[in-house]
């Protein structure tokens, strides 16, 4: 079976800096792929390449066998790849509901249909009670969830989650983990960047590890936990985090 997404020999240079260097891996339909690595390892850059914000300096990205690495972000989203932002980007002076309606329009012919999708997604992400709030008034935890809600409203096949758990308190964390599991149950494939080791080990089917822009390991959580390269690069310093 061909993978849903495949990243092939992707490099991304910023001036002299190789934020990504010859990275290859693929994501199978239906799985949760964890992407980990120390700060500055190139994780967000990789999302920006997949999502079309950056055109890779070298290499290609394929989604369902179609090359997407030359397309604009809006096209890539249209094909079924949605993302969230590590530094949240709410549409500040729009209500929570309007934020999600704006993205639900992608697959809706009428406004009524967009409103229906948006309401359903807000209910799923536990934001329905806040729907009439201006999104700039939301606390961080809910803004992170609004990112997820907006991405879901575009009815993606693959969703890229960039540190959706960072800065959450334990109860919010639990809620978000339930949401991720719910997304998987809907048949949506997930790629997730996360620093929280316990969480990522628990929810990922497979994990890819980046370090200084290079893919240093790939495998099941148990394999990653035992990988000496990973331990020195990442887990070693972060064991108790």
């Amino acid at each position: 079976m061909t993978p849903l997404l495949s990243v092939r020999n992707v490099s991304m240079f910023f001036g002299g800096l190789a934020a990504l260097h010859d990275v290859s891996f693929s994501v199978a339909k239906g799985e949760i792929l964890g992407l980990i690595g120390p700060n500055g390892a190139g994780k967000t850059t990789l999302f920006n390449v997949i999502n079309g914000f950056y055109r890779p300096s070298r290499g290609n990205v394929f989604f369902k066998d179609q090359r997407i690495s030359h397309l604009r972000p809006n096209k890539i989203c249209g094909l079924g790849v949605a993302r969230t932002f590590q530094v949240v980007k709410p549409l500040q002076r729009m209500t929570v509901l309007d934020n999600v309606i704006a993205s639900a329009f992608l697959r809706s012919r009428t406004k009524a249909e967009a409103v229906r999708t948006a309401t359903e997604v807000l209910d799923f992400t536990g934001l329905l009670a806040d729907k009439d709030m201006l999104s700039r008034g939301l606390p961080l935890g809910k803004r992170k969830r609004l990112e997820i809600a907006r991405a879901l409203a575009t009815a993606p096949e693959l969703i890229l989650l960039d540190e959706s758990f960072a800065g959450l308190n334990p109860s919010e964390l639990n809620e978000s983990i339930q949401i991720i599991k719910g997304i998987k149950n809907r048949g949506i494939t997930i790629m997730i960047i996360e620093h929280h080791m316990k969480v990522i080990m628990a929810i990922s089917d497979r994990i890819v590890v980046l370090n200084y822009g290079e893919r240093i390991a790939e495998g099941a959580p148990s394999e990653i936990r035992a990988d000496p390269l990973v331990i020195t690069a990442y887990l070693g310093v972060d064991e108790n985090a």
Partner: peptide, 26 residues
């Protein structure tokens, strides 16, 4: 303003990158 166009216009005003990543051809 009350239609799809209006939502897209305001989304672009609020954050062009976010709008683009939501599938809006800015």
């Amino acid at each position: 303003i009350e239609s799809r166009l209006g939502y897209y216009f305001v989304a672009i005003r609020e954050d062009q990158d976010a709008a683009e990543s939501l599938g809006i051809n800015t």
